[in-house]
């Protein structure tokens, strides 16, 4: 089940805590965190193609901290416009950019400037000219209505305080017939109010 946010959760604190943690991941992915990062984790735990990851700049894969693998749900399709919500350092974004090819576009959105800058520079290093990265939030995407063929996301939407708003934004920017391929965490049991108010656990 998705985790519902209590009405009195301090969403500003949640937002700031998420930015702080992922800025640290961008700056030093080898630091001490309570979640896995990097290409070995992606391949061993989540089924990413090692050879595809090896073809990406190390800085984009080292900070990867996703929770599943949206690329396993079928090819994105050549020429498509794909949006990556919470693109981080760009690993999924760059894989998507390669999948859509030069006639397609891959647009990443991230609220952490350090991550967005890494994604931009990684795209340049990889020679991918069909990549754009925008600063923005999953709750208010900086994209036009019906502008995307595919929306992907990995380990980000669980961090938003209101899932219906975030999912609604994905719906808004998709073209009719567009696909929403996202990876997230779910919980198998009901969480108490005290746990759902704990920002540390939300960001964990």
């Amino acid at each position: 089940m998705a985790i519902a946010c209590p009405m009195d959760l301090d969403t500003r604190k949640l937002h700031d805590e998420i930015q702080s943690i992922y800025a640290r991941v961008a700056e030093d992915p080898s630091g001490d965190f309570h979640f896995h990062r990097g290409p070995d984790y992606a391949a061993e735990f989540l089924g990413y193609d090692r050879s595809a990851l090896a073809g990406l700049p190390r800085q984009s894969t080292a900070s990867f901290a996703g929770v599943a693998n949206p690329h396993l749900m079928g090819p994105i399709g050549e020429g498509a416009v794909v949006i990556d919500i919470g693109c981080g350092a760009g690993m999924d974004l760059l894989l998507a950019a390669k999948s859509v090819g030069p006639r397609g576009r891959a647009i990443g959105v991230d609220m952490t400037e350090a991550m967005a800058e890494k994604a931009r520079s990684s795209a340049l290093m990889a020679g991918l000219r069909n990549v754009e990265v925008r600063i923005g939030d999953a709750m208010s995407l900086p994209l036009d209505d019906a502008s995307a063929d595919v929306v992907i996301s990995n380990g980000v939407l669980n961090l938003t305080p209101d899932k219906s708003v975030a999912y609604g934004e994905a719906f808004r920017i998709l073209k009719p017939g567009g696909r929403f391929l996202y990876a997230d965490i779910v919980v198998g049991s009901e969480l108490s109010e005290s746990i759902r108010r704990n920002v540390d656990l939300w960001t964990g």
Binding site: F35, H36, L46, G66, M73, F180, L181, D184, G204
Partner: peptide, 22 residues
């Protein structure tokens, strides 16, 4: 990870989710 026991306790897993806009 250091959160493995918490994840086990509450049944937290990663999932791929597919959805299509009509």
């Amino acid at each position: 990870t250091t959160k493995e026991s918490v994840a086990r306790k509450f049944g937290v897993i990663g999932v791929n989710v597919y959805a299509r806009k009509p």
